[in-house]
Design a protein around this nucleic acid. Structure first.
Lengths: 155, 155
DNA sequence: AAAATAGTGGACAATATGCTCAGGAAAAGC
DNA sequence: GCTTTTCCTGAGCATATTGTCCACTATTTT
């Protein structure tokens, strides 16, 4: 979908100071309040802005180990029953089905390396999971972000 | 850090309806407004809540291909110069350094499979990147979430 | 038992919101 | 080139929310 410069400036502004509200946005961007409201409604309606939920830092909750776990699934059992089981594990933050030698990729967090073992054991215990392979994230030089993408999508 | 049941209910409420504001939260949770305000301040101060920025859906912007790319880095060049270059590519949404046979893992998006090739080419062109390996996310049965984790962290 | 901590409920002014409207500017269609 | 549609503006109004106090009451901690 098409996003113009005002949309980008609006999103950028909200990313930097999310608590400022519509009126303050309109002042900062030098446009009418109704315009900001209309743009936000439009971005939400088109699905560009999914929500404004609080962003939680797992590390602040004590889960400071992040790992990516790839899974091989027994062929007979489809992906979805496995995904449903994985979804029941709180430490599994996201699950993708993927191309290549493996079938699924999960992002998981844990309280420590020892705790990661516990989480992986839970994953292995899921019916249909044949094998797992884990890599631990040592550092995150570029944390998840979308602003550059929004800027690139402009026009 | 320690999170009690009220914190969890508050975060859960905000995840479901992020636009409701402090006063409405206090009504829904049957606590005083000042309590909600204090809890939110505390969660933010302790770093549990990083922010409330708008969540952007890359797919809605036309970037409906997601891939995970692992990189091998030439040993002489450290990780950081590479990460800095990767950060300049808008389609690179996050970068981790990892254990195992590879050195880095990136999440990237692209407008199509052909476009993914273009993005990967840019990654390969980064000085110090020796080899890449990509897997494409076909489906995301569990999209990124933290609420179950918050609930699990309770107490 | 005393002290510190957290929650309550109420007040107040200042600010923000949702909604509506008429007019002007810009873009699209013919 | 002209018309229609779309988008933005600036304003108004009633209502709701915020930030900031306060005194009082649990609930823990020491």
């Amino acid at each position: 979908m098409t996003v113009d410069q005002l949309d980008v400036r609006l999103v950028a502004l909200l990313e930097e100071e999310p608590r400022i509200g519509v009126l303050e946005c309109s002042r900062r961007l030098n446009v009418a309040r109704g315009t900001v409201q209309a743009r936000l409604d439009r971005l939400a309606a088109r699905g560009v802005i999914i929500g404004y939920g609080p962003q939680i830092d797992p590390a602040a909750l004590g889960f400071d180990v992040t790992a990516f776990v790839t899974l091989q699934i027994r062929q007979v059992s489809g992906h979805d029953p496995v995904a449903d089981r994985l979804a029941l594990i709180p430490e599994v933050l996201e699950v993708h089905t993927i191309t290549g030698g493996h079938d699924m990729l999960c992002r998981v967090v844990a309280r420590s390396n020892a705790d990661l073992q516990r989480v992986i054991d839970q994953i292995v215990d899921v019916h249909g999971v044949v094998r797992t392979e884990s890599v631990i994230a040592l550092d995150t030089p570029v944390p998840y972000r979308t602003l550059p993408l929004v800027k690139a999508a402009q026009r």
